[in-house]
Nucleic acid binder design. Structure first.
Lengths: 211, 211
DNA sequence: CTTGTTTTGGACAGTGATGAACAAAATAAT
DNA sequence: ATTATTTTGTTCATCACTGTCCAAAACAAG
């Protein structure tokens, strides 16, 4: 007992053969693979290939396809254009944040030569209602987006930046629907300017006009 | 030559063993299977099972998974709620048609116990950019929807039913994006009233308020 | 009834994916 | 240097799917 009490808290490396690859980079490779091909179309072999490792190393590091998808999803959510909404704070203008997000979506989606759209939105159609493990996580992401947007809208309305609406919650739902649709449509409409005109129509329609 | 000239134009049945199943119903079964599970997740065995036939009969009647998907897609497009937009005509009010479509979407999507959303929208994320045969067909469906909506919007604006907008084409794009997003979001937001409130927010935002 | 045609059920080989198992390799700790 | 520990490369059995093939079944036409 006593012999094991004082353990090295800061150990530079675990004993044993070191991994020949970076775990975070492997997750990033998985994210890109899922993003491009969709969850169902990606096999463990595909993932291992994308990661540049053997399947045995994959199974040794990750549990299975689903668990690595969840990690990839977390990574994606931090990188996605709408993550900027989390920076919105009372006291600071929110409309520029909203406009910047939409501009970024148009820019990023149209510049992606593979037209992958948004991983989360793609996954709604592919996983919600079909995959019992992953579906709820996607639902959670969608609901989370609505909650954030509702908060941002309230701040904007309180601060007189956004025209008051009767039902803020419904407007947040409208916003989420538009964002989801925009990301879907960006796979078909590939011109940045055209996407941005659609966003401008949206902003004008909900009363965010001025520059 | 001459012996084969006069042929029975109206033949009740071809010679040979009759099919033990209805082809249209088989396509319908395929549509429901693709709709529920997505293209990638459905195997030929799944299709044959859903059709109640053997795989050999499937291969005898259809070419492959993709060809039957295309047939299922055509069937779906005729059945989907937005098909009603094709009935809009100059001279007749278009706003009631639009409202009816949105109401129907909310009703149908929320009443579907399997929360399948829209087959076309689901397929955007799954097929566009990935599948070279099916992707373009989905793109075509999306572009077609925008064209129809642009026409409907122009009629509505001309007839004073809809508040004039600067960029009708962009507004049509906005409409398509909203519809796509609504169908996606309907897989997460399952309450008809809540979906309808989102639609009302949208209608109000683009200047279609009155009952 | 016989012939010709088509569908059907079952079988087949080829491909690829899964998840586990195991020995070899590579390193830290002693 | 030896030992303990971990990763890696490879192999294995199992399973599902694809597309084809063929004999049996079922019917129309003559």
């Amino acid at each position: 007992m006593a012999s094991g009490v004082v353990r090295q808290v800061k150990r530079s490396r675990k004993p044993g053969r070191p991994m020949a690859f970076s775990r975070p980079e492997a997750v990033r490779a998985a994210m890109n693979t899922f993003w491009k091909n969709g969850f169902e179309a990606v096999s463990v072999s595909d993932l291992a290939d994308a990661m540049g490792i053997e399947r045995s190393s994959f199974y040794n590091t990750f549990k299975d396809r689903e668990s690595v998808f969840l990690e990839a999803l977390d990574l994606y959510r931090g990188l996605a254009p709408d993550a900027v909404l989390l920076t919105a704070r009372k006291g600071a203008p929110v409309v520029p944040v909203i406009r910047a997000m939409l501009r970024e979506i148009c820019r990023v989606r149209s510049h992606d030569p593979e037209a992958r759209g948004c991983l989360v939105v793609n996954s709604i159609g592919a996983l919600v209602g079909t995959n019992d493990t992953l579906g709820p996580r996607i639902e959670e992401a969608v609901r989370g987006a609505r909650t954030v947007l509702e908060k941002v809208l309230r701040i904007g309305i309180d601060q007189g930046e956004i025209r008051p609406v009767g039902d803020v919650r419904a407007t947040a739902g409208l916003f989420v629907a538009f964002l989801a649709g925009l990301n879907s449509v960006s796979k078909v409409i590939r011109d940045e300017k055209e996407l941005w005109r659609i966003c401008q129509s949206f902003l004008a329609s909900i009363g965010i006009d001025r520059e």
